[in-house]
Amino acid sequence: MILIKNVEVYSPTYLGRKDVLICGEKISLIEENIEFKNEKIKIIDGSLKKLVPGFIDQHVHITGGGGEGSFRTRVPEIMLSKLTKSGITTVIGLLGTDGTTRSVENLVAKAKALKEEGVSVYVHTGSYEYPTVTLTNSVRRDIVFIDEVIGCKIALSDHRSSTITNEELQRVASDVRSAGMISGKAGILVVHMGDGEKGLGPIIESLDNSEIPARTIRPTHVNRNEKLLLQSFDFAKRGGIIDLTCGIYDKLSPKRVIKLALENGVNPENITISSDGYGSWSNYDEYGNLVKIGVSSVEALYKEFKAMISNENMNIEDALKYVTSNVAKALDIYPKKGAICENSDGDVILLDENLDIDTVIAKGKVMVENKEVLVFGTYE
Rank of each mutant, 00 (worst) to 15 (best):
M1N: 12
M1K: 11
N6C: 08
S11L: 07
K18D: 07
L29T: 12
I30K: 07
E32I: 02
E35M: 06
K42D: 10
I43L: 11
D45G: 07
K49P: 01
P53K: 06
I56L: 15
D57A: 12
Q58D: 12
G64K: 01
V75R: 00
P76W: 10
T84P: 08
T84R: 02
G87P: 11
I88G: 10
I88Q: 01
D98W: 00
R102L: 09
S103T: 15
V104F: 03
L107T: 01
E117Y: 09
Y122W: 12
Y128D: 01
E129C: 06
I143H: 02
G151H: 03
H159A: 11
R160A: 05
S161K: 09
S161V: 00
A173D: 03
S178K: 13
A179H: 02
G180K: 10
G196N: 05
L207A: 04
A214V: 15
P219Q: 04
V222G: 06
K227L: 13
F235S: 01
F235W: 09
L244E: 08
T245E: 02
T245G: 06
V257T: 13
I258K: 02
E263P: 05
N264A: 15
E269H: 11
T272R: 08
Y278I: 14
D285G: 08
N289A: 09
G294K: 05
K303P: 01
M308P: 00
I309V: 15
I316K: 08
I333G: 00
G338W: 00
E342D: 06
L350T: 04
D356I: 01
K363T: 05
V366Y: 09
V366E: 08
V368I: 15
N370R: 15
K371D: 00
F376W: 14
E380Q: 13
